[in-house]
Design a protein around this nucleic acid. Structure first.
Lengths: 337, 337
DNA sequence: TTGAAAGCGTTACCAG
DNA sequence: CTGGTAACGCTTTCAA
């Protein structure tokens, strides 16, 4: 496999030879704010274009920062995750970084391998979107001078930056909306992923309900997907005391749940059943759903990440919580009848 | 911005010092199939672990191939594109490559910048998923010894590998299914993106219909999105002679189209209206839609890409066409009444 | 099996 | 403003 010849790229030396100058001159021509005479610059540019020269960032990264940022992510096909990756790669690019995407499973072993790649490629920073990275490796990253940003993860490791949405707020607000709608029997739908964010949304919702003297039926079905939402609905409506108001910890769960509730159990949303989701994926706004949900403010989050990377001294601050934005649509009744 | 100190990574020299061996020994320890005595290997490994050493792939890439593959992609949030990126990053990783994702707009200028990055980072290969790369730059990539793989693009450039789904087949089959269902007035819904793939699906469908003596109303509304599908439906059903069978060149268009047709115009699918899509995104299988469509066989396509990259001699072969897989669901009547 | 040395392509530093 | 030189971290060749 590695008997393959390396591609033959054009080097600064070749450009220098052709232009009849030193390689220093070539380097300076391509260095922001270095002093080169207009004459040599022109000669160099001409030679460079003719040869198809491009500065080798790998070699440059040997002495200075590589400008590489590693994005460690799992479940990339999930709409919310796809949007995160999209926005982050965009903003990172705009600030002069290049993104290496490492697509992992959520298990620790897989994430470890990803972090090792991060170190192998001398990434300036690592941004972890999913999975549970082992503390020891994170520490290695930090010890090597990398910046580490953990998004929506629970682990708060010395030296890493943490950033996430305020799940507690969503849990409380969801309860408020369902109660205001006059829901009597509350349900919470979650997956078996056990992610910190999902668990927090669940616990806050359940606790807030308990504080209000209400009971919540918690249903947990498979991974975080549309299908699990469907499955949950079948379990929940296939027995007595089924809920008339549910908080699904994820939009994907909510959409599957709604579809089965309406199509297989003939329920009307929001008349017979109120549903609230979380994330505000694009599909939540589709006219078949019109799901009331909480938007993860991806844009501000990405801005924050870029900011953190540009100003490393801010990095070790405590966890930044960003408020989700309630998106009012049609899946919850405005007030109790 | 670049006054930032580079991260301080552990080097082979440091490991060598600590282990009391030469840096050559360290290098050999981490090189597949080099000869090191068990004793030194152990000493090296010990020191390496203690220090948190990781081979610098950037430095390695100076002499050999970088193992970096650049993925140039636009519209990453689109379900089909997200899946492509997901599958490709996975398979590339599995074959020992690392993926740099360059998120572009579809315009040529933006793609050019992306390709330049590709060269800057000495990627072994560039895979273009969307946008229209300028021929001259592609040539530069190839001249520098890079492999270039164009997916679902039309441009067939000397030295690049081309790979795509058989759009013509989908166009013909879509027509067949609609005619078999007894549809009398045919419609084709597309976007204004003007991508080669979309245009081909449209043209083949329209031509096939013409050959059968049928006329097709073509509607073009905005970018390739759910909203454009909605918009198209409003245009199409807001006037006389509206179709009873449509081929939407994309699932996203189809889903928006269906929603408006049913909710705003009270049409029953497939009784009053048959709809066919293309891509087989996850949402097409949701119970609210059950869309009959053509699946882009992403897995085989990604396999093919990896194959191409591993065996460069195959690269210059002619365009590889992969057949889309018809997915039969509920949005088309089985046969005319 | 081992270590010394050369070379990969850059950029920063120093003389001129 | 310019060219030479050192250094970055690695792998590979060559001698020992």
């Amino acid at each position: 496999m590695s008997e393959l010849k390396p591609p033959s790229f054009v080097s600064a030396q070749m450009v220098a030879d052709r232009a009849g100058v030193s390689r220093s001159a070539v380097s300076r021509t391509f260095t922001e704010g270095a002093s080169v005479s207009e004459a040599t610059r022109r000669k160099v540019m001409e030679a460079a274009n003719a040869l198809g020269y491009h500065v080798n960032h790998l070699a440059r990264g040997l002495r200075e920062r590589s400008n590489i940022v590693c994005l460690v992510v799992a479940d990339m096909t999930t709409p919310i995750r796809a949007r995160m990756v999209d926005i982050l790669t965009r903003k990172l690019q705009a600030s002069g970084k290049i993104t290496m995407v490492i697509n992992t499973e959520t298990d620790t072993e897989s994430v470890s391998a990803a972090l090792r790649q991060t170190l192998n490629y001398r990434a300036d920073a690592t941004v972890v979107l999913s999975g549970t990275p082992p503390a020891s490796l994170i520490e290695t990253c930090i010890a090597n001078g990398q910046q580490v940003v953990l998004i929506n993860r629970d682990e708060r490791l010395q030296g890493s930056s943490n950033l996430g949405v305020d799940n507690a707020m969503a849990g409380r607000e969801a309860l408020y909306l369902l109660r205001r709608a006059g829901c009597q029997r509350l349900g919470l739908i979650t997956s078996n992923a056990g992610t910190a964010s999902l668990v927090e949304r669940e616990e806050v919702f359940v606790q807030a309900a308990r504080d209000a003297g209400l009971n919540v039926t918690v249903t947990q079905a498979g991974p975080t997907s549309y299908q699990s939402g469907q499955e949950a609905a079948r379990r929940v409506f296939g027995r007595s005391a089924s809920p008339d108001g549910v908080f699904c910890v994820t939009d994907l769960l909510a959409l599957g749940f709604m579809d089965v509730a309406r199509q297989e159990f003939g329920l009307k949303v929001p008349d017979d059943l109120c549903v609230i989701g979380f994330d505000d994926i694009e599909q939540a706004s589709w006219s078949s759903y019109q799901l009331t949900t909480f938007r993860q403010p991806l844009d501000p989050m990405a801005d924050e990440v870029v900011d953190l990377l540009l100003q490393p001294e801010r990095a070790v601050s405590e966890r930044r919580l960003i408020e989700p934005i309630p998106i009012w649509r049609r899946s919850v009744r405005p007030a109790s009848a």
